[in-house]
Design a protein around this nucleic acid. Structure first.
Lengths: 210, 210, 210, 210
DNA sequence: AATGAATGAGCGTTCATTCAT
DNA sequence: TATGAATGAACGCTCATTCAT
């Protein structure tokens, strides 16, 4: 049951223009949503910050929720693009994974407000768009699943196959934790420290005495 | 800089009655907030679901945000109470911790919607109440810090002291992950499985080949 | 067409108690009405300032407007009592009048806030109570009419009879002017100066060159 | 410390339209405020009587009090315009003054309800707007001060300079008296009579027997 | 394609009044 | 006689959305 990318209808025909205007909308809305939240941001504010009138805004969207959807999508695209740029193949799967985790956490650190935004406002999305956004979220997990699998395959990592999915989630959660608990974590650890410690824990684990 | 528990003023003088009515309000509001979100729930709906009129609702609160605060507080109290009931001393610190993690995850599983609610709506709280709620959240992490410390002290666990705090966060995150990613995790793992696997990872870690 | 003193029904039988409680109500309400206005004062505030509960308040009045009526009546009674105490017979009618004007202005100076209150809130009274209050207001004018008449009769003042009523109004207006325009007048004149100048004008008039 | 004319912000940009709509608002609100008072008039009533919806009303004002301010300003403008039209230069200062008083009283007679409205509701205005309205009120007094001064200068009137301000107030009060005490005065005197008698008193004064 | 004035349902909140105790 | 909890109609105001220009 695949939730499909919803293409939001626009009254304007020229697709180039539609894309340009929607970029303006997203650019304006992200900042507003982050600082005031979705519900406390008005469509007038979005229009104004986008640089055009309320009427024009509604030429490119059908409802305020569409803006939230566009924003979420844009954030995911941004994260994915940043991840793509960061990911490089290393000696072996385990090394590649270790590097990818580090990259991922750096990306999350850069877009922390935006990730928070998605988590806090996603429920304001209508059913289907919400499912699509969650699905996209899953893609990131899958990337790590694939990496884990490759590392297992090339023998650089040992992990039973039933735990792969869980471990992938754990990795992603590392990023979300850095975002969600920043008020507590950043007082104590730098990003570099956090990455090192979490990676060590992940690869080493606690040692229980025999 | 300790954020203090805010006692919300009431027009009604009898403290017993105030408590009873506020319990009704919280009981009604939790369900509404979970299913529709704070912003889409109206005060009239809260009043009606509480079993009294809008006028009466405002005898016991000063603003809609007070209801959210009451709800958050009630959830924390519930979690803490459940945790207290669950926690028992075992043979050694490591065992106690292992059991506590299991208990904690069971509690989170029971109150998952409520935990989600707090995370999604906390930003709608005014500054001070928000700080208080976050602080209360921290208490849970501290509990696990103390447990880790005891397990280290009695020799049943080995962990460098700089990582204690982080490890405590990781444990709490385990619970939040189960709540936040339930749409993905519950398709694949039962709670029991999840607990077992995560605990093993925590205590064993991944094994990287030499 | 005489508007009659409206006796406000009370649920309480003991007339002594009714009077006592109503005095408390008036005492409390006058200050509130002066500082916040009738509409912005709540019945709860009146009850609290009166020293009893909202329920008790409604044992002694039937509506919020009754409180305004009681307040207006009390103010009139106070003004009349003060006037009675001040008025003394002098050598002749003109002297008595001159003294009475001075007394009247002193009284108005003392109760200025209350006079202002009546003028600003009287329209909030229901039809009949309003008429009664206005009628009572007229009594003051009549007092000066009578004085003017006596001064004319004893030959100490010359004024055509058709102007008596008007002149009485003019005198009363002197007091109201001191109250209404205090923001402008008191910057420039002391009460004593004001009295002297106005009395001179009244008794002397402008001299137009022949 | 000059209280400045407050220009009320509007969401609508076209100034011509803003002016037109605000005229509609004032036209509608004056009548409502006069008959029911400011507090008992609802914003919906104002909108309806203005011929548009509540939403549209709030495109042109920011709060209900803005309407009151607009109304007060409009009334002052109306009075000033009528005064300007009426005022003509006569033979000498005293004659001009006499005519101006008559004109002023005619104007006050025409707008009596509106003057009453200002006096009864001015206290509902926020601090600064209130100061501005009172200041505008003062302008009328100043006009008469100037006239008195001119009449003194050209020798057509004799009055010590310290009394000029007071006399100007007395003249203005004549108008207010006609408005405030109409319930008593109009039963007895026509406007023409009132003007003649008051002017005579002003210019002649009472004669006290030697 | 762009504008922005107009709409009105709906919101959070207040408060005069009632009535069971 | 005194209380104060309960009521709900009514308020001022907002804002997503529409549509004539």
């Amino acid at each position: 049951m695949q939730a499909k990318k919803r293409s939001i209808p626009s009254l304007v025909k020229d697709p180039k223009l539609v894309q340009k205007r929607r970029e303006q909308i997203v650019e304006a809305a992200v900042g507003l949503f982050i600082s005031k939240g979705f519900h406390k941001t008005t469509t007038r504010e979005i229009a104004k910050a986008s640089g055009f009138s309320i009427g024009t805004l509604y030429e490119y969207i059908q409802s305020k929720e569409d803006v939230l959807y566009l924003v979420c999508e844009s954030i995911h695209t941004e994260v994915e693009k940043k991840m793509e740029q960061a990911l490089v193949e290393s000696n072996n799967g385990a090394e590649t994974l270790r590097q990818a985790i580090s990259d991922f956490l750096h990306v999350m650190d850069e877009v922390d407000d935006k990730v928070l935004l998605i988590y806090q406002e996603i429920k304001s999305l209508p059913r289907e768009p919400m499912r699509y956004v969650l699905q996209r979220e899953s893609r990131i997990t899958e990337i790590f699943e694939e990496m884990l699998q490759r590392a297992i395959n090339d023998g650089s990592l040992r992990l039973d196959s039933h735990s792969i999915r869980l471990m992938a989630h754990n990795i992603v959660i590392l990023g979300e934790m850095w975002v969600f608990r920043r008020w507590a974590l950043r007082q104590r650890y730098s990003l570099a420290e956090y990455i090192e410690m979490q990676t060590n824990l992940l690869f080493g684990g606690l040692r229980v005495e025999a």
